[in-house]
Nucleic acid binder design. Structure first.
Length: 594
DNA sequence: CTAGGGTTAG
């Protein structure tokens, strides 16, 4: 059990004990110490029941005790009773910095960040000086408002007024920069107060790196000897596991698993992060093991294993788990359905996915986030339903590069390169920055529709005007584009002029074109080059054997296959899927869905 | 009497 849970439990016991021994009598304010203890326990255990009665006792005396009213503000706020907190605040006769800060914090904790800032202005008008507590709460308010501007102003205020910066304030400011600004600025805050760093500020910085796409730096900060004296807790470990998952680093991941066991850091977020890490590193069996041995599963546990299975090539397992979740009456959320949709997309389970769509509408989830809309769109696109995908696309409010890319790819999959291009132009018109995934998608769409001229033009636009450095995927798309259309000499020329060594997938695209257009002599030239660059790769032999097969040279095919066997290389056979037998399996699922 | 960090998704 973590410290937070323990404390909440303890305060709950304090209350039970007190009200058991004095069933009808609440403490009177003339015993302020006991009174404060009881109030604090109400706040920490989130039990609002007794607070109004205690409040009555306080305001009976004249003048009411400012200290106790301030505690009441805090207690109400922690129980989520913001209007009550506000009333108590207005009843305080002498408002000192603590009273103001309690109310500012009350707003920040109850999602009224805007009011926190307003109240801060009133506090300054009342000539009460803010302290590090006040500014910490205000920094949290800025984080919730996603307001870098206000946050920077606050940071400046702290420096200008020479307010003592402790690890609490450091963490709040650092976190503000992580969520609203850049990790660089966050790191600057962290480094400037390195002397007062503790586990929480250190962890906040690790979380920042992990969440903002620098998992490598997260691990680096963790192993930095400069902070060797800090001992990680379960929050630290959970975010480090997330970083390992992003990197696909299961070696460090399992070490952290060991650390968590050794230090008894075992709560739902850690277990969920473990499930996610193992799934992302391709060790689904370990992910499954951690999941099955978690006895206090929450919705995130289910979501992690469902998405993990779906993304690790086990979509049927994912659907099976979803069914189990429903049968156990576990309540789902949008993330669950996004995972299920991704499983449906990968096996083309149109019927089932449509039921998920119905569920999304039922819960009113479609508009709730870009993630949901994009997942639904992607599902329809992958099932070859570009029209339905487009309807989802048009109904979405917020869209990002992934959304656009899924829709562009949806047209591409149907061989509608014109549709892809039109949408790509719309994207540029809306002044959105296409990323490398969008470029890959549009190039592939051109290739599948035989639009060589358009594809080449886009590639030049990407490398020239838009200053993109093409990745291996882009090169493979270009070679595929040229080779598929029969421009094999041009494709060969393109490969030779590439600034990096072509990968197996680039050769694969080329050889495929050679097979399609019966240019076997060129294919053999490419095979020789590929052999020099990539020996010992099974897929290489498969490509060669495919080329001979398209020439009808079955003797050669047999020879190559024999070579694969002798060298002990193996390749997972490819497969494709068609939805059938809806009446049995899918309807079984549908029954669970409704 | 007041303050800080986490896990899942396209």
């Amino acid at each position: 059990m973590t410290r937070a849970y323990f404390l909440r439990d303890m305060h709950s016991h304090v209350l039970s004990l007190y009200f058991l021994t004095r069933p009808s009598l609440h403490p009177a304010p003339n015993d302020p110490v006991l009174f404060s203890v009881i109030l604090k326990s109400c706040a920490e255990s989130r039990q609002a029941r007794h607070v109004p009665i205690l409040h009555c006792h306080v305001i009976k005396s004249t003048p009411p005790d400012s200290f106790l009213l301030t505690s009441l503000v805090d207690a109400y706020a922690k129980c989520g009773l913001l209007p009550h907190a506000r009333r108590a605040f207005h009843e305080i006769p002498h408002r000192g910095v603590v009273s103001w800060t309690s109310m500012i914090a009350a707003y920040a904790q109850n999602d009224c960040a805007r009011e926190s800032l307003t109240l801060f202005n009133k506090m300054q008008e009342a000539f009460v000086d803010a302290n590090e507590f006040t500014l910490g709460s205000l920094a949290s308010a800025c984080t919730k408002l996603a307001s870098l501007h206000q946050g920077k102003w606050l940071h400046g205020f702290v420096l200008k007024k020479g307010i003592a910066v402790n690890s609490f304030l450091t963490t709040s400011l650092l976190n503000m920069y992580v969520k609203c600004g850049t990790v660089r600025d966050a790191r600057a805050v962290f480094d400037e107060s390195a002397d007062s760093a503790d586990v929480v500020s250190w962890t906040a910085m690790i979380v920042g790196y992990s969440q903002r796409g620098y998992p490598h730096l997260a691990l680096e900060l963790f192993t930095d000897r400069k902070w060797a004296g800090l001992w990680p807790n379960s929050v630290t470990v959970a975010s480090l596991l997330s970083a390992c998952g992003q990197l696909g680093n299961s070696v460090t991941g399992s070490s952290l698993h060991g650390l968590a066991i050794k230090c008894d850091l075992d709560d739902p977020p850690v277990r969920n992060a473990l499930v996610d890490m193992y799934a992302k590193c391709g060790v689904v069996s370990d992910a499954r093991y951690v999941f099955e041995t978690t006895f206090d599963k929450d919705v995130v546990s289910w979501n992690s294993i469902i998405s993990g299975s779906a993304q690790s090539g086990e979509p049927y397992e994912a659907l099976e788990l979803f069914k189990r979740m429903r049968l156990e009456f576990f309540s789902l959320d949008a993330v669950t359905l996004v995972g299920v949709l991704s499983a449906c997309a990968s096996i083309g389970a149109l019927e089932l996915g449509c039921c998920v769509h119905a569920l999304l509408l039922k819960y009113g989830m479609v508009l709730s986030s870009v993630y949901v809309g994009t997942a639904l769109l992607n599902f329809y696109a992958k099932c070859g339903e570009a029209k339905s995908a487009r309807m989802v696309f048009d109904s979405m409010g917020e869209k990002n590069a992934v959304t656009w890319s899924a829709m562009i790819g949806g047209y591409g999959m149907q061989g509608d390169g014109g549709g892809s291009l039109a949408l790509f132009r719309d994207m540029l018109k809306e002044e959105l920055e296409p990323n490398e995934v969008v470029f890959t998608t549009i190039l592939a769409a051109c290739s599948h529709s035989g639009m060589v001229g358009e594809g080449s033009r886009l590639f030049n636009l990407m490398c020239g005007e838009m200053n993109f450095v093409p990745s291996m995927k882009h090169y493979a798309c270009m070679v595929d584009l040229l080779a598929r259309a029969g421009n094999l000499d041009e494709a060969m020329d393109f490969m030779e002029r590439m600034p990096v060594q072509p990968s197996v997938s680039v050769f694969g695209a080329f050889l495929h074109g050679c097979g399609l257009h019966s240019r076997f002599e060129l294919g053999e030239v490419a095979i020789r080059r590929m052999l020099e660059l990539h020996p010992d790769e099974a897929c290489y032999y498969v490509l060669v054997s495919n080329l001979y097969a398209s020439d009808g040279r079955w003797g050669m095919v047999k020879q190559v296959r024999e070579m694969i066997r002798q060298r002990g290389l193996s390749k997972v056979p490819g497969s494709s899927l068609v939805e059938m037998d809806i009446n049995n399996d899918a309807f079984d699922q549908v029954a669970v869905l409704s």
